[in-house]
Amino acid sequence: MTFHIQTAKVAVLMGGLSAERDVSIMSGSGVLKALQSKGVNATAFDPAERSLDDLKREGYTHAFIALHGRYGEDGAVQGALELLGIPYTGSGVMASAMAMDKVMTKRVWSAVGLSTPGYVWLSPEDQTADNINAIPAKLGLPLIVKPPREGSSIGMSKVTQANEIKVAAELATKYDPDLLAEEFITGEELTCPILGNGPNARALPVVRIAAPDGAYDYNNKYFTDDVKYHCPSGLPEAEEREVQRLVVAAYRALGCRGWGRTDIMLRATDRKPFLLEMNTSPGMTSHSLVPMSARAAGISYEDLCLMLLESATLDHPGGPKAV
């Protein structure tokens, strides 16, 4: 369904049921205000408070997904919108589901030869004390422990001593039954947004992140001004181009569309970039990095929101067929 601003009725999906609900409301509120400023008939819609059936019943023609985390970024709401026949922003069902699962993402990237830190994945039945205690020897120290299917650094810990691994594992498994431990790459933290589809996907300017003591955690991401963001990144031109090439390849390998943002570590010893994760519904708050990068490319927040809305589509544009 083509987007026509005169006839479109847009639901900005925000809030939801995930651990990132508060951030989603901040993102969605910004998007809603921006779209309304462009003359779009847009309203807020919280799937935690209303049935998605209301979207069809109330005549919504498009959905802007400003949900983060589970049920919003993992293919669940995308599948519901496919069944309702309502075009939506961002990646489709399969790409959303794969990108939300950091282990699956790593498997795909590794399969196509893209660099990502070494890792150990433990299913619930494999999370014995011996297996958990063996992780530091396998990956070295320091290392990162996190839930594979959460975002915004929720449940994540940096382990610097072997005796910290048990507490880190307990925290991560509060948010996900599976456990992911990852090699820690010492170097510069970067992120890079991507816009578009398939061969037309393009990377925006790289953002370099300088967090206090390297603690780019949930609080620093959204609720303090202690983190410094550099865009332009200040990287040598060849390094910036290589990071951009890598993130577009990572985006396409997962089958993403519309937009996304890839987090990267640039290893200090040899300046090699390593892919950390793909965000298919990135933050759009006042602290968020996609709008910052877009501004550096000459795209205002309002224009970015409208551009993303205009890209809304379905995996199967013909819609579900009645049986």
Rank of each mutant, 00 (worst) to 15 (best):
G196K: 12
E189H: 02
G196V: 12
L143P: 01
C192M: 08
S153G: 07
C192A: 11
G196Q: 09
G187W: 04
Q127H: 00
V159M: 07
L204T: 04
L143F: 00
T191R: 08
K146M: 04
P142D: 08
K174G: 13
T173P: 09
E170A: 14
L195C: 11
N163E: 15
L190C: 14
E150T: 11
A134K: 09
I154H: 02
G155R: 01
G196C: 12
E150D: 11
L141P: 04
I185N: 03
N133H: 09
I185E: 04
A137W: 00
Y175N: 11
S153E: 10
G140I: 10
I185Q: 01
T173M: 09
D178G: 15
L139C: 10
T191E: 13
N131Y: 04
R149V: 02
I165L: 03
G140P: 08
E183K: 12
G187F: 03
V159L: 01
I144H: 00
D176L: 02
G196E: 12
N197G: 02
P142L: 06
L179R: 00
I144G: 01
A137N: 13
S153D: 06
N197R: 13
Y175C: 07
I144K: 01
F184W: 14
L139P: 08
P193M: 11
S157I: 07
E150Y: 04
P147T: 11
L139W: 04
V145N: 07
Q161V: 13
K166R: 12
N163W: 02
N163K: 14
L141E: 07
L190G: 07
T191A: 11
G187K: 02
L139Q: 08
L204R: 08
G196M: 12
G198W: 05
I132H: 00
P142S: 08
E183N: 00
A203E: 12
L141R: 05
P193N: 12
P142W: 04
Q161G: 09
L190K: 09
L143R: 01
L143Y: 01
A181N: 05
A168L: 06
L195H: 09
D178N: 15
I132C: 08
G140F: 05
T173N: 10
T186D: 13
I165D: 01
N163C: 08
P199T: 14
I144E: 04
L171P: 02
P177D: 13
N200C: 09
T128G: 14
P177G: 07
T186C: 03
P199N: 13
L190E: 12
L180N: 04
Q161L: 13
A168N: 09
L139D: 09
S157P: 08
E150W: 03
L143T: 01
K166V: 13
C192L: 08
K146I: 04
K146N: 03
N133P: 00
A137D: 15
S157R: 12
V159N: 06
E170Y: 00
A169E: 00
S157F: 06
S153L: 09
S152Y: 02
A162C: 05
S157W: 03
A137C: 01
A134Y: 10
P199D: 15
G155K: 03
I154Y: 05
P177T: 11
K166D: 10
N197Y: 14
